[in-house]
Design a protein around this nucleic acid. Structure first.
Length: 517
DNA sequence: TGTGCGTTGAAATC
DNA sequence: GATTTCAACGCACA
């Protein structure tokens, strides 16, 4: 339950090797695990393990990608790894990439490289809790030091739960009272590393470069829209600086006042995917925000402020960590038991952006193409799927978000689905987002809707009727030519021919559309 | 048992 | 655009 931090053997004999295992925390700045691995070690092995369970292409999934992740998030991860590799190279090291079941790969590395200490960021997700226990058990039997610091979040969720008598707080306000200021708030974060000890001999391992999507076996379709957001620590810090440069905007930020239909310049920072992968340290972000607040007359406060958004993240991490079966309705003590309907066709209509409500469908397209939507847009489609309109299970919607969002985070995603479906935290089920009027409030001219809805779904009468006339003309001509005796095969081959022509035209239209926008 | 409160509803009203 | 009204939930705390 608690992170281990042993200070034994801090003066290693020269020649000793350490291993830093990257999972989240894909950054150099504010990275205590990397810093500790680098201290008093002759060699440091920076390792990322490509877990086939997470990364293997799955052609049967409902969208391009692996079983668990859509292709946009996989690309984001690969970009983050490439950036990390580049930064490590500047420090005299590099990222080692291996494939396989992580605990098997790790244990083999520890043995073959004669590693004396293994360092990895503490992780509260159930998947890593189980995996990390395996590694910790092996390490303790083998006499290897384990350093697993809390650096993904501002607080250690276990500390908050302990302060509250063993139960996680269930409201934001009670969370705030328990949490207070982070212990490190007034002290400077770690000094930037100037170098990392060299990588040692890799023995019999075949180390690969950071792979591309293609090398992982993904077949990319030109038509496919991938997220416009690029992964990596460098991009995270660039984006952070860009957001922070407008001090007034930072100081006056109020989450509920943002415009969910803003897509040219989103109403929020869009730092969530960088926080999710740890390309950006939440603690560094927190300190930067506090610095801005110090230099302005007045600023907004939690829950609506930017610091408030970081604290929402902490809130959900804490509740998720302290609640068994947090990601399910069954067996989840804080979740209302609701007889949701089970209807795969309705679910598919929602997922595939064909509910017939343009506001809802446009948001679902943005989800699929960008892997990111404004928080309020997420509210609208989640409410619609569950308690608002379709009455389908929040777990089904959760699965779709978990796959397609580039910022999908186990605790936050599940927490928000519990919230929006009125299964926990929030219970005013009579407050329903209207799938029409809510969107109209922000997008009265339909700019957002037209930008994201597939052009063929919003039928343009001019081009559609022209196309229909063309097809009818061809068909009539065929009928006339054959004196009205038209076989099924004749019809089939005509359809094929018309579709080919039409298909090309549609592709051309999309290309032109792209150039314009 | 009563009361106040909870990140961001919609529609009517000013 | 801000405020009021509507209808109304569970939960914490007294």
């Amino acid at each position: 339950m608690t992170p281990s931090h042993s200070l034994l053997n801090s003066n290693m004999p020269s020649g000793s090797a350490s291993l830093i295992w990257f999972r989240k925390g894909l950054r150099i700045h504010d990275n205590p695990a990397l810093e500790y691995a680098s201290r008093a070690s002759a060699f440091v092995y920076p390792l990322f393990v490509i877990d086939p369970h997470y990364m293997e292409p799955d052609p049967k999934a409902f969208s391009p990608g692996s079983t668990r992740a859509g292709i946009s998030r996989i690309r984001f991860l690969l970009e983050s790894l490439a950036d990390l590799d580049l930064s490590l190279k500047k420090l005299g090291s590099r990222l080692l990439v291996l494939k396989g079941e992580p605990s098997e790969v790790l244990i083999r590395c520890l043995k073959e490289w004669d590693v004396k200490k293994i360092c990895f960021e503490y992780d509260t997700d159930p998947y890593y809790q189980a995996l990390d226990n395996k590694i910790k058990n092996y390490a303790s039997l083998a006499g290897i030091e384990v350093f697993s610091p809390v650096s993904h979040t501002l607080f250690n969720p276990a500390d908050i739960i302990e302060k509250n008598g063993g139960r996680p707080p269930l409201s934001y306000q009670s969370f705030l009272k328990l949490a207070g200021e982070p212990s490190w708030a007034s002290s400077p974060l770690l000094v930037e590393l100037s170098s990392v000890p060299p990588v040692g001999d890799v023995a019999s391992f075949e180390i690969s470069q950071v792979p591309t999507l293609k090398e992982l076996g993904y077949v990319q379709n030109d038509q496919e829209e991938l997220t416009p957001f690029r992964g990596g620590e460098s991009e995270a810090l660039r984006r952070l600086r860009e957001s922070l440069s407008d001090k007034e905007w930072v100081a006056n930020f109020e989450k509920p006042k943002g415009d969910p239909s803003a897509y040219i310049k989103p109403a929020t920072t869009v730092l969530s995917p960088y926080l999710k992968f740890g390309c950006l340290s939440s603690r560094y972000f927190y300190q930067c925000l506090k610095d801005v607040y110090k230099n302005v007359k007045r600023h907004t406060s939690p829950p609506v402020s930017l610091v408030g958004q970081l604290l929402w993240r902490e809130f959900f991490y804490t509740v998720a960590f302290g609640t068994p079966n947090f990601d399910k309705m069954n067996g989840n003590k804080i979740c209302k038991q609701i007889p949701w309907n089970d209807d795969d066709e309705l679910l598919a209509a929602w997922r595939e952006a064909r509910t017939g409500y343009p506001w809802i469908d446009a948001i679902m397209v943005q989800l699929r193409e960008w892997g990111w939507m404004h928080h309020l847009a997420r509210h609208c489609v989640a409410c619609f799927l569950t308690r608002g309109d379709l009455f389908l299970h929040w777990e089904k919607g959760r699965d779709v978000f978990e796959r397609l969002l580039i910022d999908s985070d186990w605790a936050i995603n599940n927490g928000n689905w519990l919230w929006l479906s009125c299964s926990s935290f929030f219970y005013q089920y009579n407050r329903i987002y209207s799938p029409t009027s809510f969107g109209k409030k922000y997008d009265p001219h339909g700019d957002y809707i037209r930008h994201f809805l597939p052009i063929l779904k919003v039928v343009s009468h001019d081009s559609a009727s022209k196309e229909c006339r063309r097809k009818m003309g061809e068909a009539y001509a065929l009928n006339k030519k054959l004196n009205g005796v038209v076989s099924e095969d004749d019809v089939k081959s005509l359809r094929r021919r018309l579709d080919e022509d039409g298909g090309q035209e549609a592709r051309g239209r999309r290309q032109r559309q792209k150039l314009i926008s």
